[in-house]
Amino acid sequence: MKLTLKYHGRLTELFGKKEETITVTSNTAEALKQELEGLDIRFRENVYQLAQNNKIIKGNEILTAFDVDIFPPFSGG
């Protein structure tokens, strides 16, 4: 299925874009994480969380949205 990844924080600069639409086969949060990490080393080398419909998703939670937000931790204060 087609999925739009929306980058935030430093990931916007790391990927050079605010969002991109890719085709994935995963249907859960964990499977998507693994698929992304297989596709691009930048996902393996950075800490981030996935969110859909304004909720952090992990493990076996099913992907239901067409957009997934990718949030890295922020450090500034």
Partner: peptide
């Protein structure tokens, strides 16, 4: 619960 593990050294740049 949000970020179980910290980022690696140098992953998030110095403020």
């Amino acid at each position: 619960c949000l970020f179980p593990e910290p980022p690696k050294s140098g992953e998030v740049p110095n403020c």
